[in-house]
Amino acid sequence: MNLIDLPADAVTLKADHPVTTSLRVAEIFGKQHKNVLQNIREIMAQVPENFNRLNFQPVEYLDEKGESRPAYELTRDGFTLLAMGFTGSAAMAFKLAFIERFNAMEQQLHSRATIGISIPPVLSLGAYLETRDSLHDLRAELDVLFTQLEQVDVRCKPAEIEAMTDPKLQVGKKVHLVRDLISTLEEHGVSRELAKELTGHNSNTVRQHAFQGKKQG
C-alpha cells in the first residue's frame, strides 16, 4: 500500500509538539466535522482527565460565514485513539500517512535537540544504517546553521574584548584582531565614555567612529 501524500498542514508544530486538528482529520478522512467532534467527546468521556488535557486541546476556528466554531487540537496519541474507530482500506491509508507525518516531525524535533550522541562499538546492520542516515541528516542541518551563524552581527562591549584570552575572534567570514580594537581606540583618542556609548555596536562600528575621530582631530 502506497502512502497518501497529505497536505503540508495536516500535521503542524505547536510549542515544539506535532499536532493535527479535528477539522483537518475530518477533511482528510472525508467525514463531517460534527461527527468527528462527537467521536472525540465520546473518547474523552472514557479516558482520564489528564490524558484529555494533554492530547485533546479545545480550540476555535472561523467557518465560511466568519463565525467561531469549536474544534480540537490532537497530539499523536489523541489522533491514534480517534483514528482507531475509522475503518476501511482508505481509512487505513490515511492513518498510515498521518503516522508517517507525525514520525517525520518528531524526528525533525529530535535532530534540533541538544546533541548528546554516543555510538556503541557494536551495531546491527539495520541500526548502523539508521544511525548513519540520521547523522547525514544532522550534518546537513548543522551546515545550514553554521552558514547562518557566519552572517550573525556580533555585538560586544570593550570590557568583554579586554577580558578575552584568545587574541582573535572569528566573526562571520572575517577574522578580527580584537586586541587591535583596543589599541585603535587608544591611538585615536577615543575615550572610555565614548566606548561605553558604543556598547552594543560591533567592532566595525567602533573602528568607524575611531577613524572619524582621527579625521576630526
Rank of each mutant, 00 (worst) to 15 (best):
F211D: 10
T80G: 01
L129A: 14
L194D: 05
Q148W: 15
T12G: 03
P70I: 13
E60H: 11
Y61I: 13
D180Q: 06
N39V: 06
L135H: 00
G30L: 01
Q148T: 09
I99F: 09
K196E: 05
G126R: 15
L169A: 09
R179E: 03
L149I: 07
R76T: 12
L23Y: 15
G189I: 14
Y61A: 07
A71P: 05
K31V: 02
A140L: 06
H136L: 13
D143M: 14
N103V: 03
V36G: 02
K168A: 13
R179G: 06
R192V: 12
T114L: 10
I28G: 03
G85V: 03
R192F: 12
T75F: 10
R139V: 05
E193P: 00
I99D: 02
V59F: 15
A93W: 00
T80P: 05
F51G: 00
T114D: 06
F94L: 00
A113W: 13
S191F: 04
V190Y: 07
A140C: 08
E162Q: 09
T12S: 06
L3K: 06
P167N: 02
A127D: 15
T199G: 05
Q32D: 09
Q46H: 08
E197S: 00
G217Y: 14
L135Q: 07
H209G: 06
L23V: 15
M92S: 02
G213W: 14
T20F: 05
H33N: 11
K214H: 10
E106W: 12
E67A: 14
K173L: 07
E197H: 03
D143A: 10
P18L: 09
G30R: 02
L74K: 00
G78I: 03
T114A: 08
T199M: 04
M84C: 11
E197V: 02
M84F: 05
I117L: 12
V206C: 04
K65H: 01
A83P: 06
P18R: 10
Q107Y: 03
M105E: 10
T199D: 11
H201D: 08
S134H: 13
S68W: 06
R76F: 13
H33C: 05
E67R: 11
Q38T: 12
Q216I: 12
A195H: 01
K215G: 02
D63P: 00
S203C: 14
